[in-house]
Every structure is written in C-alpha cells, then in structure tokens.
Computed example of a mutant assay.
Amino acid sequence: MQPTVRRAAVLGSPIEHSLSPVLHRTAYRELGLLDWTYDRFEIDEATLAGFVADLGPEWAGLSLTMPLKRAIIPLLDGISDTAASVEAVNTVVLTPDGRRLGDNTDIPGIVAALHERGVEKVPAAAVLGAGATASSALAALSRVCTGEVTAYVRSRERADEMRQWGERLGVDVRTADWSRAAEALGAPLVIATTPAGATDALAREVPAGAGTLFDVLYDPWPTALAAAWTERGGTLLGGLDLLVHQAVLQVEQMTGRAPGPLAAMRAAGEEALRDRP
C-alpha cells in the first residue's frame, strides 16, 4: 500500500536561503495535496549518496541545486535527453516501481519564462558569463534563437568551454572578451548568468529602446543592470521568473498534477523575498 504522506525536498549546499520550500508548499496547498511535505536538506557531494540510498517509498521527488546537479547523475537509473544535453540534473522523480529518474527543468523553465513575456524567437542573443547556468542558457537559446549567440567571458578557457557547449547544443556561439561586454546590451535578448555585482558597471551603458534582459539573479533584486534596463524601457525577467517556472515543472512531474499553480507560486516567492532582511 502506498504511504499516506508523500515527501519531496531540495538538496544542496548552502541551502538555507532556498525559496524552493515556499514555492512547492504553496503548490501543494493550491492543488489540495494536504498530505504532501517539502523540506530542505544541507547535502554536499560527500553526503549525497548516503542520503539517496536511505530514501523510502514515501519519497516522490528531489530538487537539486549546487553543487549536486552533476554529482547526482551516477546515482540515478536514467536521465532525460534535456538533462544529458548539459550534464546537469535539477529534478529527480522517484517512480512507484522504485526507479530514480533525472531531468533538467531549468532549460524549459527559461524558455517558458521567455514565452510568458512574449519572447518566442529572436534573431540573435548575448550571454554574459560562462558558469554553470550559461550552459543551460545556451540550451534554452537553441529553442528560441535563430541566429548567432555571443558569449562574453573573462578567460580563454571559458571561451573554449562556451564554444564547445555551443557545438554540442547546436548553437552558433561566438565569444568575446568581458571588456567588450557593453556591446552585448544591444542584442535583442541578453541573458546574464553572472554573480551579484558582476554586471553593475554595465548599468550606465544600457541603450535606449533596449530589448529583453533575463538576469538570473533574484536576491538581491533588482540588480543595477536590471534597474537600468527597466528605466530604459526594456523587457525584464529575473531569477524569480526562472525559479518559479522550473519549480512549476518540478511540481507537475513529482505530483502528476498539471498545470502547476504558476501565479500562486510566483506570489509566494515575491512575498518571501520581500520579507527577507
């Protein structure tokens, strides 16, 4: 007999400030899943295997954040083509027959967030940064960008990595040095994947009539670049847009209920961020 209580959680390190519990618990309430729980666990690469091995039949799914998106893969029975394309899993669904299946909802989450704002196709795009999120950005751009993507990076090694990801994902990637990053701001779509503060100096360079900026940060928000983008009349998406859209997809996969309650989850996320000191 299937357990009455169904469990899910987000794992990572550090995990203290994760908004995932707020989003998923809101979804459960909206969907009437009163016997579902969602927690957070401080788990690193050294403790991941033991945690996964101890999961019982009450577990329905896991959300993975850094540094576990790649470390989880050897512990799974299979991963989706989307996750394989970037070698990163942020979602694990535990099936009734005991399998552990991995997926990546960041990529379709980026696409869904762009579609929500009316961005279906663009002729060109720019990516600021070359970290872990940049590969997911390129994978998303393979679905929305019909032309060249320029990645602005700080080192030759990062440039090589981005070109390799582009080849793997079928994206025409050109690289440019970070010193020329202001050029990116004229692209129809700019995805900023950099840490807090990295793009602050670009805020004064935002052109009038700016296109669309997707800045993946959500705390602190807005970034200096995001605020300047809005002032210049551009379309702006933030990290909360990505977080909510990928969480909706996770909820749908883990619970089997669709559509997920996007509006309620976004409102809960916005309230949680406002309440932070």
Score class of each variant (00 low, 15 high):
1 M>K: 12
3 P>T: 00
5 V>W: 08
5 V>K: 07
13 S>F: 10
16 E>M: 01
17 H>N: 07
19 L>P: 05
23 L>I: 04
24 H>Q: 15
26 T>K: 04
32 G>D: 04
33 L>H: 05
33 L>G: 06
34 L>D: 15
39 D>L: 08
40 R>N: 06
44 D>K: 12
52 V>F: 13
53 A>D: 15
53 A>N: 13
53 A>C: 08
56 G>F: 04
56 G>D: 15
57 P>K: 10
58 E>Q: 14
60 A>K: 14
63 S>G: 14
64 L>G: 06
66 M>W: 11
72 I>R: 02
74 P>H: 12
75 L>K: 13
76 L>I: 01
78 G>W: 04
79 I>K: 06
89 V>E: 04
90 N>P: 02
95 T>F: 11
96 P>I: 12
96 P>F: 10
96 P>A: 13
97 D>E: 15
99 R>A: 09
102 G>S: 13
103 D>Q: 08
105 T>N: 07
107 I>A: 05
114 L>A: 11
115 H>Q: 14
116 E>R: 15
122 V>K: 08
124 A>M: 01
125 A>Y: 02
127 V>E: 08
127 V>F: 10
128 L>I: 01
129 G>P: 01
136 S>G: 10
138 L>R: 03
141 L>K: 12
151 A>M: 12
152 Y>S: 03
153 V>R: 05
160 D>K: 12
161 E>R: 13
161 E>A: 15
167 E>Y: 09
174 R>S: 14
175 T>V: 15
183 E>R: 06
189 L>R: 03
190 V>G: 00
196 A>R: 05
196 A>I: 02
197 G>R: 00
202 L>P: 10
203 A>F: 00
204 R>T: 13
205 E>V: 00
205 E>K: 02
208 A>E: 11
212 T>V: 09
212 T>E: 02
215 D>E: 14
216 V>W: 01
217 L>A: 09
218 Y>M: 08
220 P>Q: 09
220 P>I: 06
221 W>M: 11
226 A>R: 01
227 A>T: 09
228 A>W: 00
228 A>D: 00
229 W>F: 04
231 E>I: 01
237 L>H: 05
241 D>H: 02
241 D>Y: 00
245 H>E: 14
245 H>G: 02
252 E>F: 13
253 Q>W: 11
256 G>V: 14
257 R>H: 14
259 P>Q: 11
261 P>V: 01
262 L>K: 09
264 A>K: 02
270 E>S: 08
274 R>W: 10
276 R>E: 06
276 R>I: 04
